[in-house]
Design a protein around this nucleic acid. Sequence first.
DNA 1: GAACATGCTGTCAGTTATTGTCAGTAGTCA
DNA 2: TGACTACTGACAATAACTGACAGCATGTTC
Lengths: 229, 229
Amino acid sequence: MSRAQRLLDLIQVLRRHRRAVAGAVLAEELGISLRTLYRDIETLKAQGAHIDGEAGIGYVLRPGFMLPPLMFSEEEIEALVLGSRWVSDRADGILGKAARNVLAKIGAVLPDDLKYGIDASGLLIGPGEPIAVGDHELAAIRQAIRTERKLRIDYADEHGNATQRTVWPVALAFFDRVRVIVAWCELRDGYRHFRCDRIAALETSSERYPRRRAVLLKEWRILRGIPEQ
Amino acid sequence: MSRAQRLLDLIQVLRRHRRAVAGAVLAEELGISLRTLYRDIETLKAQGAHIDGEAGIGYVLRPGFMLPPLMFSEEEIEALVLGSRWVSDRADGILGKAARNVLAKIGAVLPDDLKYGIDASGLLIGPGEPIAVGDHELAAIRQAIRTERKLRIDYADEHGNATQRTVWPVALAFFDRVRVIVAWCELRDGYRHFRCDRIAALETSSERYPRRRAVLLKEWRILRGIPEQ
DNA sequence: GAACATGCTGTCAGTTATTGTCAGTAGTCA
DNA sequence: TGACTACTGACAATAACTGACAGCATGTTC
């Protein structure tokens, strides 16, 4: 196996272990010596991987993705830049910042003439209507979706009737002017949609919901007849 | 220098030469033997680089970008996926296909559990209003912007007055419901905006416009007070 | 504090991968 | 045809990688 491949494998092995892992364990799994493992970790860190090593504890990989060398066509990079700009402009501040980080990371590794090409990309996002809900809420909702946590919300429906519900957030849909949470509603015992701008209060529960999100998402898609994107 | 670094350098050297380059020239520039160059080209091709080699001619790199190994955080990947989905849904068909290619390429190199994570990403793009202009026009406009070609358009302004103009397309702005070309108008001798849905006919000229697009874009930004994205 | 677990670094010899040289085949252009 | 070029195989020289060992620093546990 090539060294490059082994480095990617190492990332994956690290990902599998949620908690800290001793270098000796990693070396064992990869079939290499401890000394070589240390050298590999060093190389990965130099390549930008977020690996934290602490004496007496082991190694932890901060959640993320390591991409091997990839080739993109001009059109694909245009799509990537345009998409990131849209997110930068229209999503919540935290996700927008992440989108700008993506552009910066890609820009940082491109030769100067191409870096300039990203800045001067001919595709722009026109200003849109302001988002009706604050940054903090959207970030909390995304976090709850990712970690499969229950949400407690104070919600007002289109007629102004206020209810308090516990829901299992499955997805966050971005429309031109509104954001909508797709969730299983414990109150109604079914899938419901909640416009973010009608949520009066929101609290993330520490309790995980009892089914896998991917399964719920698929179920909802079939119920609503929504194809995969 | 590591081999991995040299492979990226090779891509960059290939980029610099617009026309076909002989392998011997590339080997010389990189300070390696011809035989090693052939081996490097082979490796790059195996990694997905679009390098065409023809006996008697030399090597040509199809326009594109080679990214070295990169680390993205969870949030950055979410932003990337969401942005690509937006482009996939809202831009013209060709760019949309490129966006789906981006997702497929990234998905292809991720371990299975993460590939599933991309499909099941909790951020969705809600359906929007249909685009008021055909795929073909948008693709042609993007092409003209990229190659700095003049466009001849039949345009109707908001009052219905029809004019025929030659313009220098600088950028394409995506609003929620319309697409707008930013261009220097030869008829008006100034920057003008043209809604794509009001263009009755469009023809790409073979003539390049006489100034650099990046300069025009900057000039327009300053005139209109639009910050860099 | 003591015992232990772990990260981290240096050295060196053996192993593996990479490289250059040489020789040869075949396609393209004028 | 001749000049130029891509491409492949074989092999020896060279460079990089690896494992084993020794040692130190830092953190955890009792």
